[in-house]
Design a protein around this nucleic acid. Structure first.
Length: 548
RNA sequence: GGGCGAUUAGCUCAGCUGGAUAGAGCGUUAGCCUCCGGAGCUAAAGGCCGCGCGUUCGAAUCGCGCAUCGCCCA
């Protein structure tokens, strides 16, 4: 509906441009729907700020005059027009405009905000933690962002696949197996530190104990026999744990992609051959290199070391080649911000593989620090002292954890206050938002079924118009969040919506006893709020209970 | 030394494809429980949007430089 107004103004702009002998494309317009200056007016104003292309040097005020003269308001959507200040035109939209917006929302039901299919396949690859230990809090933030982004993209009209890349090849796996082996040998003593460079946590001890219980004869066999099976056992056990943790966090990947499979199916060699044919590779000092500097990276990258061992990057490159081969139009990777140096390399690789570098989108997620009692909680992966995602979810619940992970922009570090996340008060945004849903359910539950369609024209209070305006911007918000790959805008939106409703509720009675028709209209509005709260929370992967 | 991100109210943060008087929550202060869910609401106080220069009719938003913090690389 905002687009309708924009179209009208754009058309007016075109006529002005033609009259002034300008090309339409040389005029820029910017339109923002805003609260009215005078809230008592009861309408919303559209602020049209107009900027002419620099070379024509037309004053915005002159242009504003011309636009106003050209605007077609034969349908009466625009109730009031007034020039307000240099370059600004205020449009007050009629109540009928907003009543129709609310009617459209109600008619759309649960499909409200669902974007038309874009015909684009998107992969969101996220978490992808090495299966060498349990997921920690930082992984949780990446998981929440990746999963919410996938939901938002789906709602925006993309065809989305969630994927987890399992780094189950190479050195890390070997060290994992050896770590368990060393711990196995030290049993029943489990207190001693393993040597430097080995994984230390309690989970290593648990794995060792578990394996010993399963195969009591394990230590009587030669080391080269047991190491491989110990490695497989450890990595599979840990992966199972990761899957359980993610499931408890309501995160589901459709595809679990194994790094090892890239080698088994020959994809790495195929990808390297492809690049060699395209002239992106060269040999030097016995190693095979990717000429990344030609595509914007700061140095060239080794793909096969002089020892013959392929690098992690070689596998990752093959993996991304495979992603595009599977038909994805857009590939989004969610990485920890400490991998940011990897971005130019991967972009260069994507370009070398024959795609636009923009076909790969990378979302970098900054660190999480946990706060308890106002003090940071120490989190190191060394020495087994780290807070796992499982512990956090067990303590505060998946709803609070997810919502809190999604309150901030990915590129700012996040302080996660454990006490606050558990609080059942206004302080805690997730409860605040959920509370609105429960409150509305309670209000609607007490009402008799409506006799007929509500008269939405009765909703003339400014607080009602503010609510409708906010509700009506939901589809637009989803598109913006998808385009910018920033699901955290949903939390801001929902918190605002909750505040608007609480405010409205505090001022106006919904179940007005002496005016059943008005009560019916207000219940319809409340129902619309309830629906958008539910839809919005669902995009975050947070539940919206009917009672709390 | 190079790179990426951050810097907005006492605290934690939104807002950034340039628009009118920069927004929330917490905290502080003053109010509201015969009232549809008080897990709530009303209001007040609180800002050189890190600093400087530039582009523009207009900059928290864009560009350049500097400072501080975090991270990555050498």
């Amino acid at each position: 509906m905002k687009n309708m107004l924009e179209n009208k103004i754009s058309q007016a702009l075109s006529r002005v441009a033609a009259g002034a002998g300008l090309e339409t494309g040389e005029i820029r317009g910017l339109f923002v729907v805003e609260e009215p200056r005078d809230p008592a007016h009861g309408h919303l104003a559209t602020n049209a700020a107009l900027v002419l292309a620099k070379k024509f040097k037309m004053k915005p005020a002159e242009l504003a005059e011309l636009i106003m003269g050209e605007l077609d308001n034969s349908e009466g959507w625009i109730e009031n027009m007034a020039k307000a200040g240099p370059g600004f035109i205020n449009f007050s939209l009629s109540l009928a405009w907003w009543a129709k917006a609310l009617a459209d929302l109600l008619a759309a039901g649960d499909s409200f905000g669902q974007g038309a299919p874009k015909g684009l396949k998107v992969m969101v690859e996220f978490v992808s933690a090495n299966p060498t230990g349990p997921l920690h809090v930082g992984h949780g933030r990446g998981a929440a962002i990746g999963d919410a982004l996938a939901r938002v993209l789906t709602r925006a009209g993309y065809e989305v696949t969630r994927e987890y890349y399992i780094n189950d090849a190479g050195r890390q796996m070997r060290i994992l197996g050896e770590s368990v082996f060393k711990r196995l040998k030290s049993l029943p003593d489990e207190t001693g530190e393993l040597p430097e460079g080995y994984y230390q946590g309690d989970y290593i001890t648990s794995l060792a104990r578990e394996y010993l219980a399963r195969r009591p004869d394990v230590l009587s066999r030669p080391e080269e026999d047991i190491l491989p099976e110990l490695t497989v056992f450890a990595h599979q056990s840990i992966l199972e744990g990761i899957k359980e943790d993610l499931a408890a966090f309501r995160v589901g990947h459709e595809v679990w992609f194994s790094e090892t499979s890239l080698y088994q199916t020959g994809l790495v060699d195929q990808a390297l051959n492809f690049l060699r044919d395209k002239g992106h590779l060269f040999e030097e000092e016995g190693a095979l290199w990717f000429r990344a500097t030609a595509l914007g990276d700061e140095k060239d990258r080794v793909l096969i070391k002089s020892t013959g061992e392929k690098t992690y990057f070689a596998a990752d490159l093959a993996y991304h080649w495979n992603k595009f081969q599977r038909g994805f139009d857009l590939v989004i990777d969610i990485w920890g911000a400490d991998h940011h140096g990897y971005v130019p390399r991967m972009k260069a690789a994507v370009e070398a593989l024959g795609r636009s570098r923009d076909d790969l989108g990378v979302v970098l997620v900054q660190m999480v620090s946990l706060i308890r009692d106002g003090k940071p909680v120490a989190m190191t992966t060394r020495g087994g002292q780290f807070i796992t995602l499982r512990e956090v979810v067990a303590e505060v619940g998946a709803d609070a954890a997810r919502f809190n992970f999604l309150t901030r922009s990915p590129d700012t570090t996040l302080e996660f206050d454990l006490e606050l996340a558990k609080a059942k008060t206004r302080d805690n945004p997730v409860y605040y938002v959920q509370y609105v849903g429960a409150r509305i359910e309670s209000i609607l539950k007490n009402a008799a079924p409506p006799a007929g369609p509500p008269d939405l024209g009765l909703l003339t209070q400014p607080e009602e118009t503010s609510l409708i305006k906010h509700l009506a911007s939901f589809p637009e918000l989803i598109q913006a969040a998808a385009a910018r790959r920033e699901p955290h805008h949903l939390t801001t939106y929902l918190t605002s919506l909750a505040r608007l409703f609480h405010h409205y509720y505090g001022i106006h009675r919904i179940a007005v006893e002496d005016n059943p028709a008005l009560a019916e209209s207000r219940r319809a509005l409340a129902g619309a709020v309830r629906r958008v709260i539910r839809l919005g929370l669902d995009l975050l992967g947070v539940t919206s209970p009917d009672s709390m």
